Simulated assay, not measured.
Amino acid sequence: MSQQIELNGVVADHQYGQRLDQTLADMFPDYSRTRIKTWIQQDQVQLDGQVANKPREKVLSGQQVVIHAELEDDVRFEPEDIPLNIVYEDDDIMVINKPAGLVVHPGAGTPGGTLLNALLHYCPSIAEVPRAGIVHRLDKDTTGLMVVAKTIPAQTHLVTALQGREITREYEAVAIGHMTAGGTVEANIGRHPTQRIQMAVVPSGKPAVTHYRVMEKFRAHTRLRLRLESGRTHQIRVHMAHLKHPLVGDPVYGGRLKPPRSANPDLLAFLRNFKRQALHAVMLRLEHPISGEMMEWHAPIPDDFVALVEVLRADTKDHPDDLVWI
């Protein structure tokens, strides 16, 4: 069995001059480069309405990409009755508040138990939408807001809006170290040159921009509000680590524990047991893909994040002599 799919996108400015197969692999990361190359060679890809069947063809920024392809059901994802925290829903979209520990999409080592499986159970018709309507992802242990498309037209509009940086996503985080002011990180992100399961700031990576501002200062940590312009894998985590201020609890980029001096045993134990990156997608703003209405949602800070802030705040209050830097 197979299904017909349609993928749409626009070649970004930074992709100018890239090979067609590389560009499409960047635009549609849920499909392998081998599969994309096959689609190109089988005349299933169009650039500005013209068939493009040469994988090495160079693309131009602003070109409209349309892929009409047949997707073989080599992998069948099963519906699973997994609770969903639905913040908003209508006929076209859903906004989900994702908890920590929930993987967004099945993959190697995670064949089920994901948000995708939950969506298939909650809304069976979403099986007709590529990737069950998932437009963007959050890491397994990052919490907060995600938008899901319930129809192909809605997904097409949302993907285009995301690529055009027309969807606003803001996060809260707690970083290690003293950060006295906000700023912007503009640094390319790609695969780590030696640790292939990690991402890193590398010259050959994809352009990535993260804005951040300081919300609250503690003795040895900083609470941040961040806004993405791009959506690279692990972007906030990589950019903050690049600044030498990795996120508290980050198991990949966090490095060793760095508690404030003279920290009491309760604070030390809390930091040691905080096993996920302190990162929460707190705000999502977008234009509704069908009605055109501008919409905005906010997700409350999860309990473990609240507890982290409270223990750091209490520690700061208990050591006023250490606050000369604030």
Rank of each mutant, 00 (worst) to 15 (best):
V147Q: 03
Q64W: 01
E310P: 00
E170C: 10
G133K: 08
D74K: 14
T194V: 15
R276M: 05
Y253C: 08
T222D: 04
R213N: 10
E80A: 12
Q64C: 07
S262Y: 10
Q277H: 14
K317G: 00
T23S: 11
R313Q: 14
V214S: 02
E80Y: 02
D13F: 10
V209S: 04
L271A: 07
W39L: 11
Q42C: 06
E166S: 12
G49K: 06
I197P: 00
I189Y: 05
N273E: 11
H319R: 11
R272D: 05
N273T: 01
T184P: 00
P251K: 01
Q18D: 13
F77N: 12
V45L: 05
Q15W: 10
N117K: 06
C123P: 00
G292I: 03
L7H: 05
I301S: 13
T180D: 14
Q3P: 00
G177P: 02
G133V: 09
A149H: 05
V45M: 08
R35S: 10
R191N: 09
A127K: 14
R225W: 12
M1G: 15
R191E: 09
A307C: 09
F305C: 04
R227E: 13
G133I: 04
R237K: 09
E293V: 13
K317Q: 14
T142F: 10
R137A: 11
E170N: 06
T210A: 01
A181E: 15
T38P: 00
T110W: 05
H280T: 08
V202W: 07
D26L: 11
A263H: 05
T156S: 12
Y253G: 08
E229T: 09
P251N: 06
V11G: 03
A149E: 06
I326V: 15
M199F: 00
D303S: 13
M1V: 11
H242D: 10
I96S: 01
D250C: 09
Q64P: 00
G62V: 07
A154Y: 06
L228K: 03
V11K: 05
V306N: 08
R33I: 08
D321W: 12
A175Q: 07
V104S: 09
T160S: 14
M1L: 13
R225Y: 08
Q42K: 14
R137T: 12
H288D: 02
G49E: 02
V238F: 01
V148C: 05
T34V: 12
S262W: 09
Q44C: 12
M27L: 15
R313E: 13
A25T: 15
G231F: 06
I5L: 11
G182W: 03
A220P: 00
T184F: 02
V104G: 06
Q64N: 12
L247G: 07
G254Y: 09
A127M: 03
P79T: 05
R137W: 11
P289E: 08
L257K: 07
M27N: 00
P124N: 10
G9S: 10
R219E: 14
T233R: 11
L268M: 10
L20R: 08
E78C: 01
A161Y: 02
L267R: 03
G255N: 09
P153L: 04
E293S: 13
S125M: 08
L7Q: 03
K244F: 12
V11M: 02
M94K: 12
D304N: 13
H178L: 09
Y212H: 04
L226C: 12
T38N: 11
I36V: 10
A25M: 01
R191W: 05
M27G: 00
Q3K: 13
A154E: 04
